[in-house]
């Protein structure tokens, strides 16, 4: 099964990103947040997975899976990444420590990334510009990574497509 995995912290736009390019209304397992952070933002959170797909010319479906964001659901990360072709990591620039979030997820998905590839999209930079892309880039440099990094609006299909384009570009480069 050909699937692309979307991950990142709660509120980064994983469900929205899948919805923006999926052919079907995404199947989402979202519930109301019960903790203070989530309730303050009046948000819902994914507790199992989000799912959508798009179909290629030869009727092959590319499946889009979104993971739950919080670490307590990390058993789902392992389940969902099995057989995935690559990872899209979305980060919410309006969270308190988004650069550290990036480091955390890159470490949590390290094995999957090493065997496939990752592309990073930073959302909500218009809401909060406390960190610039250079801050993320500096952190990546410190961690010894050169990953594609973009500012994106998860609601915009074009932005999500750029992420997938870049992901496929690095996967192809890895094969050549």
């Amino acid at each position: 099964m050909d699937k692309i995995i979307f991950t990142g912290p709660m509120g980064a736009g994983k469900t929205t990103a899948i919805a923006s390019i999926s052919e079907i209304p995404p199947i989402a397992t979202e519930v109301r947040c019960s903790d203070e952070e989530g309730q303050a933002r009046k948000e819902t959170t994914t507790v199992a997975m989000d799912y959508g797909y798009f179909t290629l010319d030869d009727s092959v479906r590319v499946h889009l899976y979104g993971t739950p964001g919080q670490e307590r659901f990390n058993y789902m990360w392992t389940i969902l990444t099995q057989g995935g072709i690559g990872l899209v990591l979305l980060l919410d620039n309006a969270r308190p420590t988004p650069v550290e979030d990036m480091a955390f997820y890159l470490d949590a998905f390290r094995e999957f990334i090493e065997t496939t590839g990752v592309v990073i999209g930073v959302t909500r930079m218009d809401v909060n510009n406390q960190f610039s892309l250079d801050d993320y880039r500096d952190k990546l440099f410190e961690l010894g990574h050169i990953y594609p990094l973009f500012e994106v609006d998860a609601r915009q299909a074009e932005d999500v497509k750029i992420l997938i384009h870049a992901l496929l570009a690095i996967l192809q480069a890895n094969m050549e």
Partner: peptide, 22 residues
């Protein structure tokens, strides 16, 4: 490093070159 395609307009072909040249 990856060009900052958030402000630098890119075509798919640019992503392909960037991925290879990195």
């Amino acid at each position: 490093q990856w060009p900052n395609f958030a402000v630098l307009p890119c075509q798919p072909v640019h992503l392909r070159i960037a991925a290879f040249m990195l």
